[in-house]
Simulated scan of single mutants.
Amino acid sequence: MADNKQAFQAGQAAGKAEEKSNVLVDKVKEAATGAGTAAQTAGQKISEAAVGAVNVVKDKTGLGK
């Protein structure tokens, strides 16, 4: 009888541990997605700023005409 109870408790503990690990994995995935989005946005802003800078140089040097 004690063996069944111990096996049941071990199963419960394993299930709880698996659920906690799944929650942590989901949080890590969300954080990684957020970081990727932020990096993509930053890259886009840098690219836009570079294009703007090139256009200013072209206008100032007369190359843009």
Score class of each variant (00 low, 15 high):
residue 57 V to H: 06
residue 10 A to I: 01
residue 50 A to L: 13
residue 37 T to M: 07
residue 50 A to N: 09
residue 31 A to P: 04
residue 43 G to Q: 04
residue 38 A to L: 12
residue 5 K to F: 14
residue 58 K to H: 05
residue 32 A to R: 14
residue 38 A to E: 11
residue 35 A to K: 08
residue 53 A to M: 01
residue 33 T to S: 00
residue 19 E to R: 11
residue 16 K to P: 03
residue 58 K to C: 02
residue 32 A to D: 08
residue 34 G to K: 03
residue 26 D to S: 09
residue 20 K to D: 15
residue 13 A to N: 08
residue 36 G to T: 00
residue 32 A to Q: 10
residue 22 N to K: 08
residue 39 A to G: 02
residue 25 V to S: 12
residue 46 I to A: 14
residue 22 N to P: 08
residue 47 S to D: 13
residue 37 T to P: 02
residue 51 V to R: 14
residue 14 A to S: 10
residue 33 T to E: 00
residue 22 N to Y: 11
residue 52 G to E: 02
residue 17 A to S: 04
residue 60 K to C: 05
residue 11 G to E: 01
residue 34 G to T: 02
residue 15 G to W: 00
residue 52 G to C: 03
residue 62 G to Q: 00
residue 54 V to P: 01
residue 16 K to C: 03
residue 55 N to Q: 12
residue 35 A to D: 14
residue 38 A to Q: 07
residue 44 Q to G: 10
residue 39 A to E: 04
residue 48 E to D: 15
residue 14 A to G: 02
residue 10 A to E: 05
residue 59 D to F: 06
residue 3 D to R: 05
residue 37 T to G: 13
residue 33 T to R: 00
residue 3 D to W: 11
residue 50 A to G: 03
residue 31 A to D: 08
residue 43 G to V: 03
residue 16 K to M: 09
residue 52 G to Q: 04
residue 5 K to M: 06
residue 1 M to D: 15
residue 28 V to Q: 04
residue 16 K to Y: 01
residue 59 D to N: 10
residue 38 A to R: 11
residue 21 S to N: 07
residue 15 G to C: 01
residue 38 A to C: 11
residue 28 V to L: 05
residue 58 K to S: 01
residue 51 V to I: 07
residue 4 N to T: 13
residue 64 G to D: 06
residue 1 M to V: 13
residue 25 V to Y: 08
residue 47 S to E: 13
residue 63 L to E: 11
residue 22 N to M: 11
residue 18 E to P: 02
residue 65 K to V: 11
residue 22 N to W: 05
residue 1 M to Y: 14
residue 54 V to Y: 15
residue 39 A to M: 06
residue 26 D to H: 08
residue 26 D to N: 10
residue 46 I to R: 14
residue 32 A to I: 15
residue 3 D to Y: 15
residue 28 V to W: 02
residue 26 D to R: 13
residue 44 Q to V: 12
residue 45 K to M: 08
residue 17 A to C: 01
residue 20 K to M: 15
residue 2 A to S: 10
residue 22 N to R: 08
residue 9 Q to K: 07
residue 29 K to A: 05
residue 13 A to M: 09
residue 59 D to E: 09
residue 24 L to V: 08
residue 51 V to M: 06
residue 48 E to G: 15
residue 1 M to H: 15
residue 17 A to H: 00
residue 13 A to E: 07
residue 12 Q to L: 10
residue 27 K to C: 07
residue 46 I to P: 12
residue 51 V to E: 13
residue 16 K to D: 06
residue 19 E to F: 05
residue 5 K to E: 08
residue 16 K to Q: 12
residue 34 G to R: 02
residue 56 V to I: 08
residue 7 A to I: 09
residue 26 D to P: 02
residue 41 T to N: 14
residue 35 A to L: 10
residue 35 A to V: 12
residue 32 A to E: 06
residue 37 T to A: 10
residue 33 T to K: 00
residue 57 V to T: 07
residue 59 D to R: 10
residue 18 E to F: 03
residue 12 Q to H: 11
residue 2 A to L: 12
residue 14 A to N: 07
residue 35 A to H: 09
residue 38 A to T: 12
residue 6 Q to T: 10
residue 1 M to I: 10
residue 43 G to C: 04
residue 8 F to L: 11
residue 22 N to S: 12
residue 1 M to T: 14
residue 12 Q to K: 12
residue 14 A to L: 04
residue 16 K to G: 06
residue 65 K to Y: 01
residue 58 K to A: 04
residue 53 A to T: 03
residue 20 K to P: 15
residue 21 S to L: 08
residue 29 K to I: 09
residue 45 K to N: 11
residue 19 E to V: 06
residue 7 A to Y: 12
residue 24 L to T: 07
residue 10 A to P: 00
residue 62 G to R: 00
residue 58 K to T: 05
